[in-house]
Simulated assay, not measured.
Amino acid sequence: MKTIDEMLHLALLTSDQHHQISAWIAHADSPEDILNMPPLLWRALEQASAIMGVDKDLLRVPTFEADNGIV
């Protein structure tokens, strides 16, 4: 839900879209239920995701640097 909240904050979703998408996700029992979101909401979510580069982040290979503080 944090990503959807960020989409609202960046004005990529209207408050109504944010509310409807959040409610849909909250009541979904499975990932398949989320995929059955109404087309207008799904398109709004896809557009906001594209602008934010969500897919690029998910496909990016993580970098492992020795100086990152993780042991």
Rank of each mutant, 00 (worst) to 15 (best):
V61Y: 11
H9K: 15
T14A: 01
A44H: 01
V54A: 08
I34C: 11
W42R: 14
D67F: 09
F64I: 12
E46C: 13
D29R: 10
L40I: 10
A66H: 05
I70C: 03
A66L: 15
E32Y: 08
A48D: 08
E32S: 12
L8P: 01
R60S: 12
A28P: 08
D55I: 09
P38V: 10
P31V: 10
A26H: 12
P31C: 05
L41K: 01
W42M: 12
G53C: 06
L45I: 04
M37D: 01
V71L: 06
M1Y: 02
L45S: 12
M52T: 12
M52Y: 03
A11L: 03
L13K: 00
F64D: 15
S15Q: 15
S30F: 12
A50W: 03
T63I: 09
A44S: 13
Q20P: 03
I51Q: 14
P38D: 11
P39M: 04
M1P: 03
I51P: 07
A11G: 02
M7I: 01
D55N: 04
V61L: 11
P31D: 05
A44N: 03
E32N: 07
S49R: 06
D57I: 09
L35Q: 14
S22N: 06
D29H: 13
K56L: 09
G69T: 03
P38I: 05
W24R: 11
H27E: 11
K56T: 13
E46T: 10
E65F: 04
D55T: 14
T63H: 09
V61H: 09
P39V: 07
D57P: 00
I34F: 08
G53T: 10
L41N: 06
H9E: 15
